[in-house]
Simulated assay, not measured.
Amino acid sequence: MPDTLPPPRFVFMEVNKRCNLRCTHCDYWQRDDDDRARYLGLDAKRAILDDFAAMNPDGALVICGGEPMLDLEEYFGLCAAARARGLHILSVVNGTRIRRAEMAERVLREGPHEVSISLNSHDPALHDETRGVPGAFERAVAALRLLVAAKRRLGMTDSRIYVMGLIFARNYEHIEEFYDLVLNDIGADQLKLNFLQPSFGGGGGAPDPFFAAESGVDAERLTAILSRADARFGLGLNPAWIDAVGMYFRSIAAAQDLERGWASRSATEDHICNTYERNVMIDHYGVARLCFSTQFPGKALRAPGDLRRFWERAGTTRARMRQCNQWCGISHSVRRESSTLKGRAKMEAHLARHGPMPAPDWASRAAAGLHALVR
């Protein structure tokens, strides 16, 4: 029996697997794109976006890497395809390819509607240490300033420029200084907070020294700091999200095997993820899943309607995922509670706007010329 959920809000598509930084909390810089010949091509991605736009004309594409802007033709080609279909676009990049005013303007005109630059701290030395490359802070902040200036120059008030922060033991007591830099000095639209979790891209039981070393966060002190920042900067934070953050770090404090990373037998006390109700992640090879983890089954998207069929028939997988309390549930991409009340209102509006999906009319869509997916 097909699920009667509203359509997905977000489709995530991966551009590459490599990165030009050497982050201590991620292993993508140790990968490469040697098997690029097996990647889903741009024409196939366009066809998937046709399916997604038919399911949810108000949906959003999230462009992922590696560092996606290392492949500019693919990056802007994917943006163009999403814009042509009326989809919203989000992307997180490290800023290293945004070095001139011309590129900043191109990003705003042709790229994501919401572009986020990753920043690990307001402290340049700490950012550079955890990003693994000297000067990374300077380049990230320069990219942000170029984007902010271009937005003002072009009058593109609908574009959003964000900072995606990472909070861990050595920086959590300085969240207010972080907000001050981002909002008042740089002039970005928002600081979004991600929190320490096992190293991104990791797996296979490899040791995770960063996760273990940076887990010493006092949950009560952190939630008090967030509440104080909310009052000071008028952030409109969601109290339920603050509570979830506190629960997350209390769970970490009780764990005994954090050095095992994703292989840890510990987990969050409460279930805080709902990726299976709103996201589809499509990997480099065209396999769709309801989260980034490969522990849950996916479906290779090969023909028109495969995306819809995958979404509607994933009830058994969703039932399993509702029992999953892995650390990644705190991630910005998958957590149930939005960090802001405004974000929560958007989620509620989506649920109110979209009832159960109508049955697909495959014959009329085929007549309209929806081309088959190709590898």
Rank of each mutant, 00 (worst) to 15 (best):
L5T: 06
P7W: 01
P8V: 01
P8C: 03
R9G: 10
K17A: 15
R22C: 11
T24H: 15
D33H: 04
L40H: 10
L42N: 08
A53G: 05
P57C: 09
D58H: 11
G59S: 05
C64M: 14
G66D: 01
E67G: 05
M69C: 08
D71M: 10
E73K: 15
L78C: 01
A82S: 07
L90C: 13
S91F: 06
S91G: 04
V92L: 12
V92Y: 06
G95F: 01
T96Y: 08
R100I: 12
A101S: 13
E102K: 04
A104M: 01
L108N: 05
P112C: 08
H113I: 11
H113G: 13
S118D: 01
D123G: 06
P124D: 07
D128E: 06
R131T: 07
R131V: 01
G132T: 02
G132K: 01
F137M: 07
E138S: 14
R145Q: 13
V148Q: 05
K151W: 08
R152N: 04
R153A: 14
R153Q: 12
T157C: 12
Y162H: 15
V163N: 02
V163L: 03
F168M: 12
R170P: 06
N171W: 04
N171Q: 08
Y172K: 02
E173Q: 15
H174S: 11
D189K: 03
D189I: 07
L193V: 00
N194E: 08
Q197G: 12
G205E: 05
A206N: 11
D208P: 00
G216V: 07
L222H: 00
T223D: 08
S227V: 02
A229G: 02
F233S: 04
G234I: 09
G236N: 10
G236M: 06
L237C: 05
A240P: 01
I242M: 09
V245K: 02
V245P: 02
E259D: 13
M281T: 13
H284E: 14
S293T: 09
Q295I: 15
K299S: 11
R302L: 10
L307P: 02
F310N: 01
W311K: 05
R313P: 09
T316K: 14
T316F: 12
A319D: 13
M321W: 00
C324V: 05
W327C: 11
R335N: 10
E337D: 13
S338D: 13
S338C: 12
S339I: 08
T340P: 00
M347Q: 13
H354E: 03
W362P: 12
V374I: 11
